[in-house]
Design a protein around this nucleic acid. Structure first.
Length: 429
RNA sequence: UCCGGAGUAGCUCAAUGGUAGAGCGGGUGGCUGUUAACCACUAGGUUGGGGGUUCAAGUCCCUCCUCCGGAGCCA
């Protein structure tokens, strides 16, 4: 029977079998220290010539880093051991001898680590980050599932753009042009009219030549869409959503946060309600900070940081100029120049993690907006049907998973938040 | 795509235009409590590719490639 290293404390004094990989080895004259990892943790195994016998002792001296081994021995609490417990080895079996492992315990450059991403994921830090990603995904699903949302999977092959602005990956679909989805939103809107409250959650693709610490070419996005919801309700939903994710991570993943040396104080400070400020107020804040900006300009990374650094919690900026926002956004009835949309900016200068808002629900207005954005009307016939057959006010948003993971983990770059990041000019391994 | 920086041993980095080096990793040996162990010895190089200047180029010039950082666009 196999015992996982994370559960070793429950087996103090017992004989257990651990299965894993050799992380590091140190030797004394007649004693060997083997650091074993199994994906749940690491433990120091101690082997003496007298305990394991001549043959096994010599085998141990030939073990290379990352060789897979099965070790049986007695678990024992020991202050000298990293992790508090160690294993007195009785038997050791070599499963697969590793070739010279490229990733040593010393420092490496980013390029080298990215080229060896398939091996890099074994390292302690990467394991912790991937577990945090998993926790965040589970929290996302639980949040919506517990609130009566239905998962509504949207297609990845799509016949046309949903926003004219971003660049799409073009591919071929049995002789027809097809594009990889850059958002599931328009399809999710059809789900809201069928099921009331839905969300889609999947990979999305943007062929933008973006080369920054916040961009991936392929990234995961969760997009809720709710019938009979307005902008204010949408912002409340987003605020509850983010609060829930943070709460879950702090509750379940202290160990991993410690491993990656994340200071949790900024996360613990996050409490509802989140600040809500209008785009127009934002422009004033940015101007006062000495950045040149005019009403009507979109925010760059620096501008976002100026705004978000003024608050402990994520800040929601709403009512952007309609001109710089997508065609499907509803205009503010109190000021037609404004769109009923919002962005949520993460604290600590991590930038936009959510974009969303209320959708245009009037048929004629939507047709005008599609035309004004120079988009082909016929591609949106099905979408316009949603306004033709029982239109209702509705709203939703999209959350970028990798940016959220990067923020919560306190990482400077999103490339470590997904097992195999697809970036500009990098598709290997 | 634009602006900046960098490519030297498996990895991280040194080397005034004048004989390419260290630490780690690998190999061999030593050590009974190591914590990225330590000590000794040892192997390991077309200095990113191509062209040029020079008596002489890792070093200077041109060009291409790759990577890193930033900008724009966006989640």
């Amino acid at each position: 029977m196999q015992t996982m290293i994370s559960e070793i404390a429950a087996h103090d004094g017992e004989t257990v079998t651990l299965k894993g990989w050799l992380y590091n080895a140190r030797s004394g004259g007649k004693i060997r220290f083997l650091l074993l990892r199994d994906g749940t943790g690491t433990i120091q195994c101690v082997a003496s010539r007298a305990d394991v016998g001549e043959e096994t002792f010599e085998l141990i001296d030939t073990l290379t880093q990352e060789s897979s081994i099965v070790v049986t021995g007695v678990a024992r609490a020991d202050k000298r051991a990293p992790g508090g417990f160690e294993l007195d080895v009785k038997h050791l079996e070599l499963i697969g001898r590793a070739d010279e492992y490229p990733i040593s315990l010393k420092e490496h450059g980013t390029a080298f680590l990215m080229e060896n991403r398939h091996l890099w994921v074994r390292s302690r830090r990467q394991v912790a980050i991937l577990r945090l990603r998993h926790e965040i995904i589970r929290a996302i699903r639980d949040f919506f599932d517990n609130r009566g949302f239905t998962l509504y999977d949207t297609p990845i092959f799509t016949p046309s753009a949903c926003e004219g602005t971003s660049t799409l990956f073009e591919t071929e679909y049995f002789g027809e042009k097809a594009y990889l989805a850059q958002s599931g939103q328009l399809y999710a809107e059809s789900g809201a009219m069928a099921l009331g409250k839905v969300y889609c959650f999947g990979p999305t693709f943007r062929a933008e030549k973006s080369k920054t610490r916040r961009h991936l070419i392929e990234f995961w996005m969760v997009e809720p869409e709710v019938a009979y919801l307005d902008l204010e309700g949408d912002m409340e939903l987003a605020e509850d959503f983010i609060s829930y994710i943070i709460e879950r991570v702090l509750e379940n993943r202290q160990e991993e946060l410690k491993t990656i040396e994340r200071d949790t104080a900024p996360l613990e400070k996050i409490k509802k309600p989140f600040p809500r400020i209008t785009y127009t107020e934002c422009v004033d804040i940015i101007k006062k900070a000495g950045h040149p900006i005019e009403w009507g300009d979109d925010f760059g990374g620096d501008e976002e940081t100026v705004v978000s650094s003024q608050f402990d919690a994520p800040v929601m900026v709403h009512r952007f100029p309609a001109e710089i926002k997508a065609f499907y956004m509803k205009s503010d009835p109190e000021d037609e120049r404004l769109a009923l949309g919002f962005d949520m900016l993460a604290p600590e200068g991590k930038g936009e993690i959510i974009g969303g808002g209320q959708r245009e629900d009037d048929y004629d207005t939507l047709v005008k907006k599609i035309k004004a954005h120079n988009l082909p009307l016929e591609a949106f016939n099905w979408y316009l049907d949603l306004r033709k057959y029982g239109t209702v006010p509705h709203a939703g948003f999209g959350l970028g998973l990798e940016r959220t993971v990067g923020w919560i983990c306190g990482l400077p770059h999103v490339r470590e938040t997904i097992p195999f990041p697809r970036m500009l000019h990098r598709m290997k391994p």
